[in-house]
């Protein structure tokens, strides 16, 4: 049965607001104009989102542009301050503290040791003019590693795993194609074996064969390393292939959530239906 033991992270009532909020929109019962307050124009980018991520599962998040998917991911990785809500990570201090409220030092510790993040645009995840190997070493040093031999071994291991030819490991990612950059970014995120990996639109903009490479890689590392993952994508075919469960976001809120085949074959929310019935 589902208990605390099999949960990797929990989020309760997470919110991210841009604006000061007024008396009108502080009252949850008042309707918003999509996700914008009609009076004070506060934007509710993420509004009251709650979910659990189980250990070893891949959770998909789908939704149109502007639905708050990326903002949520950035909040989970502490790239953005949250405005409201709670966030518990089982692998950190027994899952007791609300990690949203920790000091920046402790958050960095979580970033370095527990979370891995792969951004849609490799520019955010990599230092483009450092060698690929140095990029990985940077992550490992942040995670506390000081042994050069071990770091190079880890670098070789993960670059090889993501099929970067090892004779190019000292080249900077700026010399690489978009697909290769994305794979270096995944290697970097994996290099300290984070128990939780966040992937934000990692296959967007890649051609289908490279896409298939990246998907295979994600599936493989999930199987081999048992990493829990959150995958944001607007490609439902990818969600179908990868994810055990799926959450559909609309205007900053969760429109619908469930097991992936339930969402794709029996969508209930009008927005999910619109998405699913639009698949070519």
């Amino acid at each position: 049965m589902s208990t605390h033991d099999n949960i990797a992270l929990s989020v309760r009532g997470a919110g991210k607001f841009y604006g000061d909020r007024c008396n009108y929109c502080r009252n949850e019962n008042n309707p918003l104009n999509n996700n914008i307050c009609p009076y004070c124009r506060t934007v509710f980018a993420v509004d009251d989102v709650s979910f659990d991520l189980y250990k070893g599962e891949i959770l998909g998040i789908v939704g149109e542009s502007g639905s708050g998917k990326s903002t949520l991911m950035k909040m989970l990785y502490f790239d953005q301050e949250r405005s409201a809500g709670e966030y518990y990570i089982t692998g950190y201090a027994e899952g007791v503290p609300n990690v949203f409220t920790l000091s920046s030092q402790h958050r960095r510790e979580i970033q370095n040791e527990i979370l891995g993040m792969v951004y849609q645009n490799p520019v955010y995840g990599l230092k483009m003019d450092f060698s690929s190997m140095s990029n990985i070493a940077e992550k490992l040093i942040a995670a506390g590693s000081r042994n050069v031999g071990e770091m190079t071994a880890a670098g070789d291991h993960f670059l090889d795993k993501v099929n970067i030819p090892l004779d190019r490991k000292f080249e900077p990612p700026e010399n690489f194609s978009g697909g290769m950059q994305q794979r270096v970014q995944i290697a970097k995120a994996l290099s300290n074996y984070p128990p939780i990996l966040l992937l934000d639109e990692v296959t967007t903009g890649l051609d289908v064969s490279v896409q298939a490479d990246v998907l295979e890689l994600i599936k493989e590392i999930q199987r081999e390393l048992g990493i829990s993952m959150i995958v944001v994508s607007h490609d439902l075919a990818i969600i179908r292939m990868l994810c055990d469960r799926t959450m559909v976001m609309l205007n900053g809120s969760v429109a619908e959530a469930g097991i992936t085949d339930q969402i794709l074959e029996d969508p209930k929310h009008h927005y999910t239906q619109q998405l699913v019935y639009s698949i070519l």
Binding site: M1, S2, Y54, E57, I259
Partner: peptide, 16 residues
């Protein structure tokens, strides 16, 4: 694993 369950009631986790 769980004895008699109602498939319509169990959690996503258990169904998976």
């Amino acid at each position: 694993e769980h004895g008699t369950v109602n498939i319509l009631d169990i959690s996503d986790y258990d169904l998976i």
